[in-house]
Amino acid sequence: MFIKTIEPGEATGELAALYEAETKSMGHIMQATQCWSARPDIIIPVENLLHQIRDGFSLGLLNFRLITFVAAQHVPSSYCSHVYFRALSGMIGRDQTLAVRRDFRNAGLDNQQIEMLTYTEQIMRNASQITDADIQRLRNVGFTDLNIADIALAASFRSFMSRYFDAVGARVEPEFLDSDPVVRAEMAVGVK
């Protein structure tokens, strides 16, 4: 990491509780979490917002992770690409996750998911170019305005998170790296 953060042994209060909970659930504290401790006044609100978005996501965890994975590719973010490649592989399989990475339009997803990820791509490339017609296309495949807002929120939040991780030098933990060096290289972008 490029910046000084609060180490687990130095953490107190809410930060210590957050670190303890993550250690219990994951076996360690992710750099994606620890990097926020440079601003201890921000880490708890950021973590709470992440959980509110993800846990209350109107389209379910799978779609949240698909959006996050595609958004991470367009940031681009090695950290989030590796982490969400691992998470999605556990849900839809490694081969389909690789297919999503390479071309989600031809990855065996349903039409609604393809439209959702097309919108995600638009957000990541240039949200100012999105039109009423783009939103109507989402409605035409069955998305509600709540769903559309959730897609936009998940993609935009990933842009914020991933850019911060890279800006402060968070590095992906070894357990998130694929065993295949070709796949690892495909997930890696920017400074390696």
Rank of each mutant, 00 (worst) to 15 (best):
I3C: 00
K4T: 03
T5K: 09
E7Q: 15
G9C: 00
E14L: 05
A16G: 00
Y19G: 01
Y19D: 05
Y19P: 02
Y19W: 06
E20F: 02
E22W: 02
S25V: 07
M26F: 10
M26N: 05
G27N: 03
G27H: 08
H28M: 15
I29D: 03
I29F: 00
Q34F: 05
S37R: 02
S37F: 11
A38D: 01
R39E: 02
R39Q: 09
R39F: 15
D41C: 06
I42T: 12
V46A: 13
N48D: 14
L49M: 15
L49C: 10
L49K: 13
L50Q: 11
L50M: 13
I53N: 01
R54S: 06
R54M: 09
G56Y: 07
F57V: 03
S58I: 10
S58K: 11
S58W: 09
L61E: 13
L61S: 14
L62C: 03
N63L: 00
L66D: 09
V75I: 15
V75R: 07
S78I: 04
S78Y: 05
S78W: 09
S81C: 15
H82Y: 08
H82S: 07
Y84K: 05
Y84W: 10
F85Q: 03
A87Y: 08
L88R: 07
L88Q: 02
D95F: 12
Q96N: 06
A99M: 03
R101S: 11
D103N: 15
F104D: 06
N106I: 09
A107G: 09
G108M: 04
G108C: 06
N111A: 15
L117T: 06
T118I: 10
Y119K: 04
Y119I: 04
T120E: 02
Q122F: 12
I123Q: 08
M124V: 03
S128P: 00
S128W: 01
Q129S: 14
I130N: 04
T131A: 07
A133S: 13
A133C: 00
D134M: 02
R139Q: 13
N140P: 01
G142F: 12
F143G: 09
T144C: 12
N147L: 08
I148Q: 02
D150C: 11
D150W: 11
A152R: 03
A154I: 07
A154S: 11
A155V: 09
S156D: 04
R158W: 12
R158H: 13
S159D: 10
F160M: 14
F160Y: 14
S162D: 14
Y164D: 00
V168S: 01
V168M: 03
G169N: 06
V172W: 09
V172N: 08
V172A: 07
E173N: 01
E173H: 10
P174R: 10
P174F: 03
S179D: 15
V183R: 04
A185P: 00
E186Q: 13
E186P: 00
E186Y: 13
M187N: 13
A188G: 04
A188V: 08
A188R: 06
V189W: 13
G190H: 04
G190T: 04
V191D: 10
